[in-house]
Design a protein around this nucleic acid. Structure first.
Lengths: 205, 205
DNA sequence: GTCTATAGCCAGATAGAC
DNA sequence: GTCTATCTGGCTATAGAC
């Protein structure tokens, strides 16, 4: 009927779906649960999004487009490598502390359906590694940083940033700490990760 | 009837279940699919394991007990820190290249049910970080390695070893390589990861 | 646009023959 | 121990009233 109202219901559904899908995944989530979370009827979900699959895809794409552009900070900025690593890890870890389910959601659903990445890569502003590769190669040639493939460095950066969230239950077990202490460790990583990476690659003058 | 035959069917089921559960997860797996994979009837699964949940738990525990003891190499061996890091990363990455679904399976199911780690921790030979903490603290005090909390170092080691497998679809997308090239990158990591970590922590003499 | 009621399907589990 | 057939429940999706 009324445009504002439609938009509100539609985005209410999307937000509710986001919360449920991120916690339970595509397979584990229930349409009824999403409807309850949104405080509306289950039929409404189908009215606005036709099917569970389409609702899921809307949520997934939105989540991915929230996370991916941040990689431009490390891949396509003109700052020095060390500065990029410092600002990226700090920003990324801060962001994920606020949205702890996000990385696991993305990773899990990409593992369930790996071809999905191809759709995403066609998106505007999908970050690529090309510029970063050139920058690393130059700095290695200049003797500023140790010899390392940009691909490996990128994998390491991603691993150190993301894994502590995805592997939290496992790591809490081995380290044998409670949630509060683990959260404190994550806080420290805002600076710890950058130091670790920079020590690993920089050559003492 | 016959003992040998029982054991065979029972372990056939367990192996089939392992393959299906590791690819699809608890929620995504179908009992029919597991039965097909084992080449037997669906009713047999219930005859031997009573329910999907119990079958899953048998598979999960077995998988976990395959992976966890390897951590003793880094946490409880008497070698120097550098030697431990070298041998552990090499062994671990080699192992996971042969069983690529394993880490994601463990991590994913622990995220679905985080309290599950408590059961596992009561198992004999569950590795803990205590000895490793002492060793790191001593080496830091001696000025052999840079100041770092053992917990953070441990998280970093785990992240660098495991994430490349769990995040493979995502990383392949950003790095923009095919499966074969990515596999090559993983091979390189058998030595690359240790160098990276050791450079990050060691103090130049 | 929003609801209730229900169709239709699929999966886990069991009964019961052999 | 192994099978076929079936029960039962839960879930996505839709029909249709308001």
């Amino acid at each position: 009927m009324n445009k504002a109202k439609n938009t509100t219901t539609e985005s209410e559904i999307l937000n509710a779906a986001k919360r449920i899908f991120q916690r339970k995944g595509m397979v584990g989530a229930r349409m009824q649960e999403i409807a309850d979370e949104a405080g509306i009827n289950k039929a409404m979900l189908h009215y606005y999004y036709r099917s569970k699959q389409l609702l899921f895809e809307a949520v997934f794409k939105k989540a991915f487009l929230l996370l991916a552009p941040q990689l431009n900070d490390i891949l396509n900025s003109d700052d020095s490598i060390c500065d990029k690593i410092k600002s990226f890890t700090h920003n990324y870890i801060s962001f994920v502390i606020k949205h702890p389910y996000l990385p696991n959601f993305i990773i899990q659903e990409l593992n369930r359906n790996p071809e999905f990445i191809k759709d995403l890569m066609s998106e505007r502003h999908f970050p690529t590694i090309e510029k970063f590769k050139k920058q690393v190669a130059i700095k290695v040639a200049e003797g500023i940083i140790r010899p390392i493939k940009a691909e490996q460095l990128f994998i390491n950066i991603m691993a150190l940033n993301i894994f502590p969230f995805i592997g939290a239950p496992l790591l809490k077990g081995f380290i044998n700490v409670n949630d509060k202490t683990y959260k404190q460790l994550l806080e420290e990583r805002k600076t710890e990760v950058a130091s670790f990476i920079i020590n690993a690659i920089k050559i003492e003058q």
